[in-house]
Amino acid sequence: MSKKNPTSEQQTEFEQRSRIALQQHAEELDAATLSRLRQARSRALERVGSRKKWRMPAAVSIPLAFAALFAVLLSVQLLPRPTQDETHLFAAESLSDEWELLMADDEIAFYDDLDFVIWLDSQGHAG
């Protein structure tokens, strides 16, 4: 009844042997590596407790949030809004400008060199 499974016994023996070999491997670290590990540890320990976040108390944060919301709503209401005709006009103008720019391929280089063209123009007027 108490007969042990030989495979599992061998496995345990192998694991034990491996553990000893690995531990030996870890103990064979050179002084430079050990020193680097100590430095890494002390760097890590400097971070203990450094992640404390400041939280605004609810008594302050909730009224502040309401005040901000109120300010946004008020500014939306007070801002002069364009009439429906104006809105269409602005949209149409900007769309046509974009199309014009897009369609005139040769004009893009001109826009890129606009500073130079302005300067050239001013030179022409001066001379």
Binding site: L37, A40, R43, A44, L45, R47, V48, R51
Partner: peptide
């Protein structure tokens, strides 16, 4: 060494 240091720092920090 970098990996171990990263792991140490994260453990300490969080």
């Amino acid at each position: 060494l970098d990996l171990v240091q990263d792991a140490m720092c994260k453990l300490a920090e969080k």
